[in-house]
Amino acid sequence: MKYIYDLHKVMLKQSLLLVYEGEFSQEITKAVLAMAERNMDSFGEQRKVKTKVFNVMVELLQNIFKHSQSYQEEIYGKNNAIFSLAKTDDYYFVLSGNPLFTSEVESLKNRLDAINLLDAAGLKEERRRIMKSNKSNIGKKGLSDKGGAGLGFLDMAKKSGNKIHFDFEQINDQLSFFSLRMTIDRNIESKSEK
């Protein structure tokens, strides 16, 4: 049973507030969000930071269950992935990892690299461009077949105010493991506290 103690130590060492490993769904998303929120409330995190963390978490969690591929479903269940929230004195880290088809790696990497080249104004402009092109397609038509608006990563980059950290590991012939880390500063100035 020592692994429980080891796991406990890893979580403390990496400042992990919560870790969820398993199947992802909207129900799980809601539960994870509620836990994170309660956790941040418990030490009185400022509203502004909390809102940013929450926003990034929502996009990340919904991305996972819309895009994660099932991997050894009989062992891990459907859309198996890992999600974690970590907190240090200065930052929150929103972390995720999920399997996806290796054939999708290159386009995803290019997309994330392109987003990372943009500054705040560039992110805003790109967002506007996508929204404008969606405008004439009312309802479902303007969304992908998975119900996304194509804005998730842009929005995460914009709200977090930091670059997207990511990498890919090969799992087998078909699948790769996509790891992502978003960083949110805890020490952003709050208007009402000025």
Binding site: Q46, R47, K48, V58, E59, Q62, M131, N134, K135, I138, G139, G142, L143, G147, G148, A149, G150, L151, G152, D155, S190, K191, S192
Partner: peptide
């Protein structure tokens, strides 16, 4: 979420066609 932002834009597009329509956008001061 971003999917909702698309649908909010759809609502606004509908309002665009309605005469006398205006939006009150509330946000927390922070």
């Amino acid at each position: 979420n971003t999917a909702s932002s698309k649908l909010i834009l759809d609502i606004l597009s509908k309002l665009e066609e309605i005469e006398g329509a205006s939006v009150i956008w509330y946000f927390h001061e922070d």
